[in-house]
Nucleic acid binder design. Sequence first.
DNA 1: CGAGACTAGTTGACAAGTCTCCTAGTCCCG
DNA 2: CGGGACTAGGAGACTTGTCAACTAGTCTCG
Lengths: 173, 173
Amino acid sequence: MILSRIILGLLAIAPMSGADLKRQFDTTVNHFWSADKAQIYRTLAALVDERLASVTVVPGTTAPDSQEHRITDAGRVALVAWLDSELDRQPERDAFIARIFLAESLSDDAVGRLIERRRAAALEQLAALETIEASAAPARTRGEHLRLATLDHGLRHVRTELEWLDTVEEQLP
Amino acid sequence: MILSRIILGLLAIAPMSGADLKRQFDTTVNHFWSADKAQIYRTLAALVDERLASVTVVPGTTAPDSQEHRITDAGRVALVAWLDSELDRQPERDAFIARIFLAESLSDDAVGRLIERRRAAALEQLAALETIEASAAPARTRGEHLRLATLDHGLRHVRTELEWLDTVEEQLP
DNA sequence: CGAGACTAGTTGACAAGTCTCCTAGTCCCG
DNA sequence: CGGGACTAGGAGACTTGTCAACTAGTCTCG
């Protein structure tokens, strides 16, 4: 459901093929959603099925011709309906925090290593976000403004994460 | 996999029935994981199946006798193995941020409402975490210390979220 | 005593997400 | 020319998580 609406939203920004969408999910959109390509193609097929999107085959230089999907009028209606609907409350889920919570039986060293690995992941995330930020044009339209705000959201949370890791590490041994 | 290890970890703190676990997932552990009761009972059965936990029926005052599960030695081994294993990288996933990213076609009012609903959810979360914090005993053992650190993690992120919501709202109209 | 609420545990169906492998075609390089 | 890497698209099996309904017993209160 959510994935189908996100795809619809991306198609509303520009028509795209499945492979294009996969690239979006791996880069610009990665800080709040991601998707397996199998899932993307299936969802795309379902959207066309429901007449929320349409396909046109674009013969190109590469292998199977890419299939450009574009949002239909019905699709736009469905998209706005979702955007404006009740928030789906989503459970917090963080396996790393779970490990820390349960780390009683782990040695200090092992806990330290855990923290370091998380820090590495967070720094990677930070770098990825900063790259996107650096390559982003200054926001002119409201749409661009909102998209930048979500980047800022990601950055703030990664930084909070890094700060938290620092304090945990300090208090450790 | 992760759920089964978390349950194992909780059983390592104290033997518990399925209903007890459900209560944990709804309260103390809620800020980083949650689980449906169907899932809990099924996972518990699997753990017993793999000899990582054992059951004893505790006849009690209420309806079906509760089944106390306790972690076995093999279970402790499996738990530590998981705690100390490579971090499972988990994709960020936040449907709310997705909506903001795609909110171009929404009216200013609608975006404002979205923000307000998120703020309400965040404040609720904050209250829940503060309640747990207030009722928590000061950490004496390292285990308690680590558990408090995860609470702090939750609090920091909710506060970051609220700050972000403020700045987004300011820049809005 | 009997109705209704509550309890622990259980089942089935389903939706969402992941992993592995496959087809066909193009491109590059030795 | 032939092999290997890469591309877009896709099928299948499997795991996780969610939802709804059900059993069977206890407790409370009119």
